[in-house]
Structure formats: C-alpha cells, structure tokens
Design a protein around this nucleic acid. Sequence first.
DNA 1: ATGGTCGTAAGACGA
Length: 258
Amino acid sequence: MILATWNVNSVRTRLDRILDWLARRKPDVVCLQEIKCRDDAFPYEGFEAAGYHVAVHGQPSYNGVAILSRSPITDVRTGLGDELLDEQSRLISAEIDGVRVICVYIPNGADLSSDKYPYKLRWLDALEAQLERDHDPDGRLIVCGDTNILHRDADAYNPYYWHNTGIGNDAVRAHFDRLIDWGLGDLLATKHPEGGIYSWWDYRHLSFPQNHGMRIDHILATESMAERCATIFVDRDERKTAFLGKPSDHAPVIAQFN
DNA sequence: ATGGTCGTAAGACGA
C-alpha cells in the first residue's frame, strides 16, 4: 500500500496537477488538507474517474480535509466532538483495508499572543483524547497530515525562528511527544533521523529555490504499521513551479507499506 | 528570516 499526505492549498485550483500526480505515483490512499471548498463544490468526478473513492469534510475558503482511496472507504468520521473545534473542518478519518486512517490539518497556532494559539492547544488536547477514547496503539492506525508542528530542530532550515511561535515552542513540541508516547512513530524521522528533509516552503523570500523549508507534514503510525513501512520520502518535484505550474506551498509525503 | 506570495473572494485575512 502506498499512502500519501498532501496539503494542496485549494483542491480546485490544484486539480489538474493532483490528477497528473495520481497517475504518476499511483498512491492507494491520499490524505488531503486545505481543500478550501464545501463538500458540494469538491471535484468528485475527476477523482472518481481516476479510480478513487472519496470522503470529504469540506469548508469554504479555509481548511477542509479529504481522503482518496482505491479501496472502498467505510466508517467515515469527522471532527473531534468539541463544538468550538468542530466549527473548522480539520479532521476526517476512515477505515480502509483494515487500517484506520486519520487525516488531520492541525491549526497553525500563529503567534503565542494570538487567540489561535490556545485554540491549537485545545485542538491537540482533543486529538489526544480521541486517540485514548476511540483507538488502540496496538491496532492498525495511521495519523497523517499537516501537523503544523516543528518537532525537532533538524527539521527546519532555521529552527530558532520558530521556537517562540505556535509552530515550534516547547508546549506544542510536548504535544507531539505525547502522540509519540501514546504509540505513534514518526515514520520519516525513523528512516532519516539526520533531518534536513522538508515538506513546506514559504511562498515568499525564494524559500524553495534556497531550500529554506520545514517538515511540518507527518505520517505517524502505530507499531504494527510502522514495521511494514519500507520507504518514505517527500515528493519535492510537486513544489516546483517549472514542473507543472503553480504549486502548493507543501509537497506530498509518500510512504510505502509492505 | 519574514514588507517581498499565494488562495479565496472581492478587501482583508490566513498561512
């Protein structure tokens, strides 16, 4: 099974590029974030014609997540069971071939003085509660998406810049630690502990050509899935403008499981 | 290292 996660920054603007990528990479499961459209505006037809089942949890303008799968999707669930947090569409999960796949778009958090920062902490609390309540670290589980968390200094060009922000401060890193402690492995960090591999580059400041990026898109998995992971990489070509036109500011992360 | 870019949707706002 090939599984990918990709913050596409608008699924409608990026549709042709995503379909071209699906044809080339042939992933079995794709978790999309920032689709930025309502459920009824999602381009189902293109993905279904490409052979994918689709589960969507949309929202106009901001946020929105979806799962694509070659195998049938069952038991779709959305949100965190918290009225305030579920005003924003940031979580969808489904059962696919006996694996629970949770697709997340964790809040950015912004500056620590912003009210978006406590919102992020509340969101992470609720995610951890959902794992405790509904899932089993001994089961087959993948949690992936745009986590908006810089977990290790090795995962950013300039980690110090992020240390006093909602992306990389100690409190947010401690939340990531708790996900690991619960029983999730960071598959890319396990395979490539040296770091220096990024999944996001700011649109500004020529960040991508200079490789001034950060790894904030993760594929986390319980041990029974982690041990089946053969390869994992960031598909950097999808961040290139010259390749197929306007890219998202994120590149896909792709993992292959035996 | 963040004025400098995007997407959405029609002027900011979020990232």
